[in-house]
């Protein structure tokens, strides 16, 4: 397993730092050789940057990848947006020498050069492929008897032409990682549906974006779960803070706790919900947090 650098992105360090802390605890707990990716920037945000200017998107993404190449490490992301942006950019640059030349001309201005020697990983596919549910199970101290609504999000598995995660209609690799922690992944209607945040829709058309989240939350509520588990801080924000906005705007109240998989895994490894910032979410469900204390 090649060593990795930890790419934080924007939302995790700057809005949900508990997920950052949980991820580092988990990487240490699993004995993964990781290092900070010092000086990284926004991935950049695919919705806006990729839509605005392709070469700028590729150049900023390449700079982040080069920082990791310089450390001879693969890039480990913990966000579907960062993964989508960096993996797709890496893919384009590796396969299009003309584009790579253009990007390298710009990177030359800051004495950098993209080589294409690093892979971009996402923590869920990384754990699934490099460890697998059985080894993850061996690493936990405390099985969590929870009913979980799993949200894969979109860019972890799509576009499938640039991913290697099997079916996009009925994937199971993430469910397996959740069930390795003793939890039960509950099926719900339209499970693979988008949370509505991506593509710049949340930032520019908030109400429309929240209508998509509202539909998702309703289906989850109907399934009767203890919490939502995701793989992406933007989905996390949309489903956590989004519940506050949906209550304000549409009067629908759900009060469903939301956790990133790193947080769930850290808790199963023996950390407290406060250690990994579950209590810093917008949806504060004391009863649930109590159960996590075990």
């Amino acid at each position: 397993m090649k060593p990795v650098s930890l790419f934080l992105g924007c939302i995790i360090p700057n809005r949900y730092p508990g997920i950052e802390k949980a991820t580092k605890l988990v990487l240490d707990g699993l004995g993964i050789d990781w290092a900070d990716l010092a000086g990284a920037s926004c991935c950049p945000a695919p919705g806006v940057f990729r839509s605005f200017d392709k070469v700028t998107w590729l150049t900023l993404a390449a700079r982040n990848i080069v920082l990791s190449e310089q450390m001879d490490r693969d890039v480990l992301t913990i966000c579907n947006g960062c993964f989508g942006s960096l993996a797709d950019a890496n893919h384009e640059l590796k396969n299009d020498p003309g584009l790579a030349r253009q990007v390298n001309k710009h990177l030359g201005e800051v004495d950098m050069k993209y080589k294409g020697s690093a892979e971009v990983r996402h923590i869920i596919e990384f754990l699934s492929k490099e460890f697998g549910p059985d080894k993850v199970k061996d690493a936990i101290k405390r099985p969590l008897e929870l009913k979980v609504a799993l949200h894969y999000g979109c860019h972890l598995i799509k576009p499938s032409k640039d991913r290697d995660m099997g079916t996009v209609e009925n994937p199971v690799f993430f469910d397996e990682l959740v069930e390795a922690l003793g939890a039960k992944s509950i099926d719900y209607e339209d499970k693979m549906a988008c949370c509505g945040a991506g593509g710049g829709v949340r930032s520019a058309l908030l109400d429309k974006s929240l209508e998509m989240a509202d539909a998702k939350l309703l289906h989850i509520a109907e399934a009767g779960v203890d919490c939502i588990v995701n793989a992406c801080p933007f989905c996390h924000l949309q489903l956590d803070f989004g519940q506050v906005e949906i209550k304000d705007k549409f009067g629908h109240e759900y009060n469903i706790p939301v956790l990133h998989y790193s947080q769930l895994l850290a808790i199963a490894m023996g950390y407290s919900p406060e250690d990994v910032g579950v209590d810093l979410n917008f949806i504060k469900n004391e009863e649930f947090i109590d159960r996590l204390r075990g």
Partner: peptide, 29 residues
């Protein structure tokens, strides 16, 4: 949470931020 106030990103490294600023300038962004 017992973490540094600023993450290990451009937020903590002014030289890194300068690189980003230079790049968005030269790409015409």
């Amino acid at each position: 949470l017992g973490m540094d106030e600023l993450p290990e990103t451009v937020h903590k490294y002014p030289d890194a931020l300068e690189q980003v600023k230079k790049l968005v300038e030269v790409t015409g962004f």
